[in-house]
Every structure is written in C-alpha cells, then in structure tokens.
Design a protein around this nucleic acid. Sequence first.
DNA 1: AATGCGGGGGC
DNA 2: GCCCCAGCATT
Length: 260
Amino acid sequence: MARRAPILDWYARHGRHDLPWRATRDRWAVLTSEVMLHQTQVARVERAWPEFLARFPTPAAMADAGPAAVIRAWDRLGYPRRARHLHDAAVVIAATGWPDDLRTLPGVGRYTAAAVAAQADDADVPAIDVNIRRVVQRVVGGRLGDRAAEDAMIRVGAPLRGRDRLLALMDVGALLCRARDPQCGACPLRRRCATRGPLPDEGTRRQGAFRGSFRERRGRVMAALRAGPTPSAELDAEALASLVADGLAVVRGGRARLPG
DNA sequence: AATGCGGGGGC
DNA sequence: GCCCCAGCATT
C-alpha cells in the first residue's frame, strides 16, 4: 500500500490558501489575477487585485469602462501593455463570450491559458511558470523546455491533478524551492529531488539597469498621462512615440492622453 | 533563441 | 548595488 504522498500533506498545511484570488473560481477573476501576476510579485498583487477586480468585476464592466480607465487603475504595477491587452480581451469576451482557446485573447499565452483553465475549471492541464519550472528542473536535475517541463510537472505533482497540482507546485516553488536560499529540509519533494539546491546554471535572465533606461523614460510619460492630458512638448518624444505604438497613448492637437 | 517591456521588494 | 519577480509579443 502506497504511503500518502508528502506533497498532499504539505500543501494542505502550508499552501497559500489565503491568497485572495484563490477564493474564487470565476474565470474573469482568475484571469485578471494571472495577468496582474505576470512578472509582478505576489505581495504587490495581493494589495492591488481586490480593488481592481471590484472596479472591473466582469468583462462587460471593463469593456464599458474603456482602456483609459483600465490603464489608470493599473497605476504603477508596471508593464502597462498588460492593462491595454486585458481591456481588449474584455471587449472580445463581452462581445462573443469566452473563446475555446484562451491564447487567442490578447496578452494570454501558453502559461496563462493553462493556469486559468486549471484554476477556474479544474482542468487537468500543466502550466509552467517561473516557480514550477524551477521546482521540476531541480527535481529532474537539468534544464527543461516547456513541453518537457509540463511532462515533469505531471509526474512530480502526482497524485495531485488540475488546480491542486498547479497551486501546490507553485507554492513549493515560492515558499521552499526558491531562487535564493532554498529550504530543502522542509521540502516534500526532497526524497525524489536530484539536485536539492540550485542547479549549476538555472539561466536566470539578466535585465539591464532600470535607472536611466528607456523603460524608465516610458514610465515617466505613462505617469504623466495617468495624471491627465499633457502637452506633447512637455513629454519625452521618443518614449511617447513608443507608447503610441503600443496603444497606450494618443496624440491629438499637440496634446497626449490615454487612449479611449 | 533573443529582446523589449515597469517598478518595486529584499538583501 | 544587484537579483528577482504566477510572461507575452515580436523578431
């Protein structure tokens, strides 16, 4: 008779069951949380998401509010293209319903489509984010592409499936199997783990300094536009042009403003 | 496969 | 200072 898998017990006791978006299985609520979590730490999203969802509780509500309201509500969360894409996705959903393939929605890729299906519908699909990739790579003992990581996720997460598999492995990655200072002694996977610590090369992506970067310049223009329409002459022209190209700003009559 | 894309938390 | 963060779109 097989023993109860350690990850079941660990997840029941130590999983982040307190995270606000885990209290819902509403697709729209889950989607908004997932988009907000793209490259943004859980602690920040915890603070911002409840108010954001209350403001845009349904796709129709967001579609009706228009892109400017969504971009403004996004505030300083970063990557404002996410807000633009989310609004555009809301327009599609409000008009024609949820598509069969969520990846057809703007701003929704392989990970997010699977993560929404698993959490909202308990679909038995794997989804690889930075946390789960780190966990399964360390357990297996080497770098894995998306497909191989998904296969490994199913094996490593067994007997969990669907929603619980996703969330349990996410929590292991975030709380124990961390990029820095992993807590292997407390890990439910340690007996099957090939590495028990960071891989020799986990290939963390480098990002240039934010200070003095073009991204910072874009950010400054976005901050001005969130505050209100601004004469173009007062703004960084290159950064503004880049924002216009991304659908995050419009210029008319020498004044720049948020779109919509 | 490699870049660009915010902004902030934590050390 | 540097590293990291529930990715996606584009090239």
